[in-house]
Design a protein around this nucleic acid. Structure first.
Lengths: 224, 224
DNA sequence: TCGTACAGTGTACGACGTACGGTGTACGAG
DNA sequence: CTCGTACACCGTACGTCGTACACTGTACGA
């Protein structure tokens, strides 16, 4: 028993759930979630495929654990600021984290039971809203609304076929605009052209909607 | 050539891309996206697995086609009403459609090129917003915001482990509340209890956030 | 010196997507 | 009426997947 603990403490040699899950995330970041197989993951860890099953019951559990680590990376709403800036900070952090692990958002649809980090996160957000004067019901509404926006934005961002502003300009000019006939899609053409001219920044786009939602929620507080 | 057309016209015998994709959607609705394999799909159609490859280049293309059919099911914003009720109608329709094909939302992350129905939809939405007086830039913002909300809501809804209000009450009382220690998660307990008491209706929850967003967008029109 | 416990593995099975090389049948040309 | 061609369709096979199961080796208390 103490032997195992020693082993786990030694971070270099010997496997551990921690090590397995962390490496799985690295692999998924690098190769996408389709490139993550138990055999490849084991290879990456210098182990046999079946060894992984001493630390995770099956692949589903591995995926659940990966998602929960991702939630751990998201900043909790800070307590010392107003509710709006607290919510803004955690939402911005969530977007960043989800954008850096694009596979995570696609996985969420299929995982139904929230992990501990997820629960801690929800608790902290709900606490922040309640302390800011929202009723139980309003806090629920706000939660759904904000989470929907964050996840939906991340989902759309993940399905964009480019990562940088330059790539966006190139793709739009070379691929999208040519295949969008101006007769059939006049408004999309107009909007694509405007975007190329004005530049493209998902972080800015995100803030726009976020602040609009936060401002619209403000008057719904039952300010004591 | 005319032979093939005859064949395709006869809807009963003979395959066709249409028939393949429609059956694939039925299968995914029934068994989830993991239950959709080329072999099973072929079996469902009374054909051999390899026959499908005469109508779709590969499974990726099949998935793309499935998603596009789903987009076809979503109501376009009606032209004869105000922009708010037009947007509300199409958003409500989108939620309904995505809720009835829960696999679709999880697929979107991985498909990067929008199909024709998707494009038509975006064009119609953008047209509606532009005609309502939003600038090109504002229409883009509104598009991102509304789509993020709709997709994010659908994503959260799809990851709920229950479908009906009764199931929700049961799950919450029997499964969630017992495993949420009131000390560690006081606010989640409070909110779960309130939800059980008040009843649960995703459609209503959706409307709340939707109307809040629409109202917040209203003053941003450059009303001519 | 042995027994036990447990980290780690090798092999095997039934699925998967799909490349490749067939069939059969329908039809226009001779 | 025959035959070549075209094309819808399929059987088989390959490499990969998740993972059940039985096995190794080694560390350690007795």
């Amino acid at each position: 028993m103490s032997a195992r603990e020693q082993r786990q403490a030694a971070s270099d040699a010997g496997l551990s759930k921690q090590r397995v899950v962390v490496e799985a995330i690295r692999l998924a970041d690098r190769e996408g979630v389709d490139g993550l197989s138990m055999r490849r993951l084991a290879g990456e860890l210098g182990a046999g495929a079946m060894s992984l099953y001493h630390y995770v019951a099956n692949k589903e559990e591995l995926l659940d654990a990966m998602i929960d680590i991702v939630f751990e990376e998201i900043e909790l709403p800070p307590e010392e600021t107003g509710w709006q800036s607290a919510m803004r900070r955690r939402a911005v952090s969530a977007r960043q984290v989800l954008a850096s692990h694009p596979w995570a958002i696609g996985l969420m649809e299929s995982r139904t039971s929230p992990g501990p980090a997820n629960l801690r996160h929800r608790e902290a957000v709900t606490a922040c809203l309640r302390r800011a004067g929202f009723t139980v019901l309003m806090a629920t509404h706000a939660n759904w609304l904000l989470d929907s926006y964050v996840y939906g934005f991340a989902l759309q961002e993940a399905s964009l076929p480019f990562d940088t502003a330059d790539e966006f300009t190139n793709m739009t000019e070379d691929v999208f605009l040519p295949q969008l006939s101006p007769d059939e899609f006049p408004y999309l053409n107009e909007s694509a052209a405007a975007l190329v001219a004005a530049g493209y920044d998902p972080a800015e786009e995100f803030i726009f909607g976020l602040d609009l939602i936060l401002a619209a929620l403000e008057p719904l507080r039952a300010s004591a």
